[in-house]
Amino acid sequence: MATVTNWIDHLSAKEVAGAVYPGAGSTETLLVIIGIVLWIGWHVITSVSEDEELSKLARKRHGANDHKSNITEW
């Protein structure tokens, strides 16, 4: 996975390769796909949990000032 194993060799090459991250030149597209899956997945998970939380709270039908009884002491 290491793209660079010897800095002296790397920097003294005729053309210095700029990309030095692990897996340079072979893994970028895979990383992008993984990133997009994680991103979409986050929306799905948080949307479901937010819907649940909101509907649970809505069912309780609290009044506009009820939250004041929950204010903790400093």
Binding site: L54, S55, L57, A58, R59, K60, R61, H62, G63, A64, D66, H67, N70
Partner: peptide
Amino acid sequence: PREVEIAGLDY
């Protein structure tokens, strides 16, 4: 939901 807005999102 309206009930949540009245109760407060942080209830």
